[in-house]
């Protein structure tokens, strides 16, 4: 049974959720773009599917493409060995503003820490992540850190907790080996 067989079932279980099906990289896997607001239903559907049962969220990766934040859920079914890449795109109101997203922790408990990490580094508030403080507090950045470092619009701070921090100025363009002279 191929992973592409899952798409019609998904359409049936959550109508209108699947936006697009695209190949992922060179490897021949497919990535399924789904609607952000129906991610929890989609997650439940593919987790419960008897033939695939994607029970392992291997990885949750976030990247910024053209001012949209793209979340990629790398899924694997531990018994059958199928893989599926589920993708969701969300657009924050402004490049610096935080944005909300539904958490999939209920379906995949292992999403807890990757979601916290994404909330810290990308400013995505995961609604439904049960850890106290996850929507406002910090995960790996120090408490009081301003901004979301992995966004493309991020500006490096010049000071933190009254500790000044300057980067080399003048020669902003690094050479071929990344050395700033």
């Amino acid at each position: 049974m191929d992973t592409s067989d899952l798409i019609p079932r998904l359409e049936e279980a959550v109508p209108g959720a699947v936006l697009e099906v695209r190949p992922f990289g060179r490897g021949g896997e497919i990535s399924v773009w789904v609607e952000a607001k129906s991610i929890q239903k989609v997650a439940q559907a593919i987790r419960k599917d008897v033939d695939f049962s994607f029970d392992w969220l291997e990885n949750l990766s976030v990247m910024e493409v053209d001012k949209a934040l793209v979340l990629t859920y790398f899924l694997r079914s531990q018994e059958k060995g199928h893989t599926l890449y589920l993708r969701v795109s969300i657009v924050p109101d402004s490049p610096e503003a935080p944005v909300e997203m539904l958490s999939v922790v209920k379906t995949w408990p292992m999403a807890k820490l990757p979601e916290l990490e994404a909330s810290d580094l990308f400013g995505i508030r995961f609604v439904g992540n049960p850890v106290p403080g996850s929507s406002s507090g910090r995960f790996i950045l120090p408490r009081g850190w301003v901004g979301y470092p992995l966004r493309k619009s991020y500006v490096f701070p010049t000071e933190f907790l009254n500790i000044p921090h300057t980067r080399p100025t003048g020669h902003t363009e690094p050479d071929d080996y990344g050395v700033v002279t």
Partner: peptide, 20 residues
Amino acid sequence: ETGFLHRGLEKALELHPWRS
């Protein structure tokens, strides 16, 4: 509680050319 060893590795990689 973790985060004490956060070095911004993923960010650093975005700031460097492929070979470095």
